[in-house]
Design a protein around this nucleic acid. Structure first.
Lengths: 158, 158
DNA sequence: TATTGTTATACTCTATAACTATA
DNA sequence: TATAGTTATAGAGTATAACAATA
């Protein structure tokens, strides 16, 4: 079971130093996780990026567009396209604040809030179990370490 | 320090349920990790995908192209382009095996092995410390959980 | 019939820079 | 001068399907 030659003959691959490369593991982990995401949200026609925008607007009404982009690590140029499409779809309201006419404040419309009301429970259900291959406890620890790495507070309980 | 209103006024964002969403955390983690990657490999003109191909070929000489693609979660169509370019650059040798003339076996050339000899120490150095924000112990635990989730053995020591 | 690699196409996301209007 | 958002363009990476050669 621990003989590399047997693994090779069974069609397995030796990752060598890559098995210690965090970026590589994170990339594969994200691909696996996203596959599960699309399974859970199959009926909703939503992509990960759109969901994150909706959730952050729900939590931070009136947030400025650039700050949203920074929080989600989405480039400003791309964020412009995303939020404009969501504005066209009636999910988002955009408004120039009086104290800085260069900026753009974002709000969810009623339709946007309704969308969140549908999606949030699906997300909660999707996240409730452990990740594939991990126990609930191990999954919680994995998330905790990622949050610490990213300097993100656990705001799910508050 | 734990008052959300203070955080908002200081320019922080409430992530709400997203702080519990594994896919979201993995995505941000990968972006952060890749930024570190490009810093470490700044002088080498290499991208993450190319490095993983080189490392896997070093560990699995003669591996078939489709198996390589599957191991790295890269689509076969994209893998074709990658390995052909690396073949043009003289890093990879491709050969049709006698027992299955549809297939393609991949090997590193001497130049490819030399490239690995340069890159592997940089990767080792890059991974030697803890991830930003985490201790070495925490980073090791994070990697262990990701490997378990992905069903990847730690082959760095063997 | 199924599989391996290839080709082609379209789409998403990213990277970059230039532009405007405001500060 | 600097900043927020916009526009435009190019380049990765991905998804998909169709195809030829082979199993």
């Amino acid at each position: 079971m621990d003989d590399p030659r047997k693994d090779r003959s069974e069609g397995k691959v030796q990752y060598g130093p890559l098995s210690e490369a965090l970026g590589f593991l994170l990339r594969l982990g994200q691909l696996k996780s996203f596959a599960g995401f699309f399974r859970s949200f199959e009926a909703e026609d939503i992509r990960p990026g759109e969901l994150t925008v909706l959730m952050v607007l729900h939590e931070n009404p009136g947030i400025r567009q650039g700050m949203l982009a920074k929080a989600l690590s989405i480039k400003r140029a791309h964020m412009t396209k995303m939020v404009r499409q969501m504005e066209d779809e009636g999910l988002i309201l955009r408004r120039v604040p009086e104290d800085d006419k260069r900026a753009m404040e974002l709000w969810l419309t009623e339709a946007g809030e309704a969308r969140v009301a549908v999606l949030a429970p699906i997300l909660a259900e999707h996240e409730s179990g452990g990740a594939a291959g991990l126990s609930v406890t191990e999954t919680a620890e994995l998330k905790r370490l990622l949050r610490k790495m990213l300097n993100i507070r656990n705001g799910a309980s508050g």
